Computed example of a mutant assay.
Amino acid sequence: MKKLMSVILCLGLSACASKELRIHGQEESSTALFNMEVSAEINEDYSDPYNILLQINFESNDGKWIRIDEAEVFTDNKEDAFNVIVGKDLVSWAEAKDEEKKIRDHNTEMTDNVITGVGGAAVVLGILTGDKNIAAAGLSGVAAGAGMSAYHKISEKKKNAQGVKMVPEGHLYAPFTVPSMSLTKRWVLINCPSGRVSKVIKLRLKTVEGESVTYKINLMERS
Score class of each variant (00 low, 15 high):
L54C: 01
E59N: 13
K78H: 14
E79G: 05
N61D: 08
N51G: 09
S60H: 05
I56A: 02
N83D: 14
E70C: 02
F82W: 00
D76L: 08
V73T: 14
E79F: 08
T75G: 06
V73C: 10
I68L: 08
N61Q: 09
Y50L: 14
S60C: 06
N77S: 10
Y50Q: 14
N57I: 03
D69T: 02
E59M: 15
G63H: 10
N77G: 01
A81H: 07
F82C: 02
D80H: 11
D80G: 02
D80P: 01
E72N: 12
I66S: 07
K64N: 12
F74D: 05
I56L: 03
S60R: 13
E79H: 08
I56F: 01
D69V: 00
I66G: 00
L54I: 02
E79Q: 12
E59P: 00
F82I: 02
I56D: 00
N77K: 08
T75R: 03
E70Y: 09
I52Y: 00
D62S: 13
D69C: 01
R67Q: 15
G63T: 12
I52E: 04
I66R: 10
A71D: 05
E72M: 09
S60N: 14
A71K: 06
V73D: 04
K64V: 15
E59C: 12
F82N: 08
W65F: 09
D62P: 10
A81Y: 03
V73F: 07
E59D: 12
N51K: 15
E72C: 06
D62M: 11
F58A: 04
A71E: 01
F74I: 01
E72Q: 12
V73K: 09
K64Q: 13
R67N: 15
E72K: 14
I66L: 11
T75Q: 05
N57Q: 09
R67G: 02
L53K: 06
F58H: 09
K78Y: 14
I66T: 15
G63Q: 10
N61L: 12
F82V: 08
E79I: 03
G63Y: 12
N83R: 10
A81I: 02
N57H: 15
K78G: 00
D69Q: 12
I68S: 03
K64T: 15
D62G: 12
D69E: 11
L53T: 04
Q55D: 10
V73R: 06
V73H: 04
D76N: 07
E59I: 15
N61A: 06
Q55N: 09
L53W: 06
I52V: 11
D69S: 08
I52M: 11
K78S: 13
E70P: 01
